[in-house]
Design a protein around this nucleic acid. Structure first.
Length: 279
DNA sequence: TCCTATGTTGTATG
DNA sequence: ACATACAACATAGG
């Protein structure tokens, strides 16, 4: 599920736990989620730590637990985060994590949301957990080395041009899905960007003129910003004027020209576009 | 039974 | 070394 805006939405789900201390860590030890760090190491490291805060960058998230300890999370295809307050009846003892709840951190009542648990669930287990111990208070190197965010000042024309020119035979939509160039863009955002640009997803970088390249930079940023506006706070629904609500199944119509939308596979990914607007 | 799914990675080939 | 293309990962739902 999660692209940039959905990742930001889920990151905020854990905010009520900020300031809380981890009183119990539960894991599903054999989950693929823990392929980078064994579940036992995660349990050992996070126990009795204070949850200080978090950041998102594209589809990556990092959670600070003080003393140079950082928990990295990627939601893969089906990951979700939630904060579950302990309500009266159930108490803090709780039951075992449910089938797809791979990491559960029980917190004491010091956080803004009171006592409760931080939950990471991911049925398909394409998600990933990492753990870093740093000597200073800075986040780990892999985090600092992430490519410039699309809304950051480092996302320049020059950078965009260089990236486009590097892959002259790769379809534009496939380029948009490359996290080195467009961190946070996923399948629906890539279709939305091509549609707003007015360029068919199969077109390649050499087919874009100067004007289209500049428009691409504007459109990529616009889609990121408005997706965050609509989704990050409360998972709102994008309006009918976007391609988004029309692209999910056959028979949808272009909200700009009314023509029936085309759907197909591009490099293994479902792709939706308008022959009229993106010929 | 077969198809789909908002993602990434390893591997083979040029 | 780099660019390109695809299978594989694991699960649920239509």
């Amino acid at each position: 599920m999660p692209e940039l805006a959905e990742v930001e939405y889920y990151r905020r789900r854990w905010d009520p736990g900020i300031g809380g201390r981890v009183v119990r860590v539960r894991t599903h030890p054999r989950a693929r989620i823990f392929r980078e760090v064994p579940a036992a190491a995660v349990r050992r490291a996070l126990g009795d730590r204070e949850f200080l805060g978090s950041e998102a960058h594209g589809k990556q998230m990092i959670f600070s637990f003080g003393g140079g300890l950082w928990l990295g999370l990627h939601l893969g295809m089906s990951g979700e985060l939630a904060f579950q307050p302990f309500d009266g009846g159930e108490g803090g003892t709780g039951c075992d994590p449910e089938k797809h709840e791979h990491l559960v951190l029980d917190l004491d009542g010091e956080g803004a949301g009171g006592p409760g648990r931080l939950v990471f669930r991911d049925p398909r287990m394409f998600g990933k957990i990492t753990l870093d111990r740093c000597d200073d208070d800075r986040p780990p190197l892999w985090w600092r080395d992430l490519p410039p965010g699309i809304l950051a000042s480092g996302f320049t024309c020059e950078r965009l041009d260089a990236f486009l020119d590097r892959f002259p035979r790769t379809p534009l939509k496939t380029l948009l899905l490359d996290q080195r160039g467009f961190p946070g863009v996923g399948n629906w955002m890539a279709d939305e960007i091509c549609w707003r640009l007015g360029v068919a997803p199969r077109r390649t970088a050499p087919e874009l003129n100067r004007e289209q390249r500049e428009k691409l930079r504007r459109v990529v940023r616009q889609v990121c910003r408005s997706a965050l506006d609509v989704i990050a706070e409360d998972w709102g629904t994008p309006p009918d004027s976007w391609l988004f609500p029309h692209r999910w199944e056959d028979g949808g119509h272009c909200p700009r020209c009314g023509r029936e939308l085309s759907r197909g596979k591009l490099r293994g990914r479902t792709t939706c576009w308008c022959e009229g607007c993106q010929g």
